[in-house]
Amino acid sequence: MRRKIISWLMPLLAALFMAGAASAAGFDEGIEYKRISPPLPTRDPAKIEVVEMFWYGCPHCYQLEPELADWLKRQPADVEFVRVPAVLAKNWEPLARAWYTAELLGVEDRIHAPLFRAIHQERRRFRSADDLRKFFVEQGVSGKDFDATYNSFGVLTKINRARQLTRRSGIRGVPSLIVNGKYRTSASDAGSHEAMLRVVDYLIERERQARQAAARP
């Protein structure tokens, strides 16, 4: 009986501890981060998933890139990072298709950072498939491969999923980060890019401790 009482109390104590830790860190639900209800599915239940909702045309997403790269280097093996292009408007779709085209072709490293730079440093505009095809070719991607992929069923399926995730997550702008399908935060919520990443660190630890508590006998 005592063991049953202890096993029942442990998750409750863990939740109370995490709530206290959040308060001590200055992070509060509804302020620095929001709960997503119902929670979104994640790719791998064994991992703590962090999704970045971004758009290539967003200057704040571009500015976040170096900070995000440094943050990713510090993440342990139980954290999985996923990029998803937000589709908050119809004119966001071509650049979202660009990400998924690069992903399906396995050329993210050749496209992702250069496309950000082309838009925000070189002031290039990509409004159509032809604009993006030219850019992909400049980066060494076959025009034939681009044509076969950009309007493919695979890209269309991923765009539809991205559109659904954008809507169901409740985000209002980018960049936004979603932790394990349960919470979302942004620089607007947290106050800065740096603070947003600290909020994400807190939420990752919160999920990790909740899992550990649930796994105890």
Rank of each mutant, 00 (worst) to 15 (best):
R123E: 11
R124H: 03
A129G: 15
S128L: 04
E103W: 06
L105V: 08
A98R: 03
F116W: 05
A102Q: 07
A113M: 10
S128R: 05
D109S: 14
D130K: 09
A118N: 05
D131F: 03
E122R: 12
L132I: 15
I119P: 00
R127D: 12
A102S: 14
R125A: 11
L95E: 13
I111L: 08
T101P: 08
L115F: 01
E108N: 14
D130E: 14
I111R: 03
R124I: 07
R117C: 01
E122F: 00
P94M: 10
R110L: 12
H120G: 11
R124K: 14
L115N: 00
A98N: 07
R127N: 13
P114S: 04
G106D: 10
R110G: 03
F116G: 02
A98E: 04
F126E: 03
R110W: 02
P94F: 04
L115H: 02
E93R: 13
I111E: 05
A129W: 00
R97A: 02
W92K: 03
A96L: 03
Y100A: 04
R127K: 13
T101W: 01
L132C: 03
R127Y: 04
T101L: 09
A129H: 03
R125V: 09
V107C: 11
I119G: 00
A98L: 15
R97M: 07
D130L: 06
E93P: 04
L105T: 12
F116Y: 14
P114W: 01
R125L: 04
R97H: 02
A102C: 11
L132N: 07
E108C: 06
E108H: 05
L95A: 14
I119E: 00
D131K: 06
R110E: 15
E108M: 13
W99Q: 09
F126V: 12
W92F: 12
D109A: 14
W99H: 14
A129E: 15
W92I: 11
E122H: 03
L115P: 01
G106H: 07
D130S: 11
E122A: 14
H112F: 08
E103M: 12
V107E: 11
A102I: 13
E103H: 06
E122G: 02
E108Y: 00
A113P: 01
D131I: 05
A113R: 15
I119M: 07
R117I: 10
R127G: 12
R124F: 02
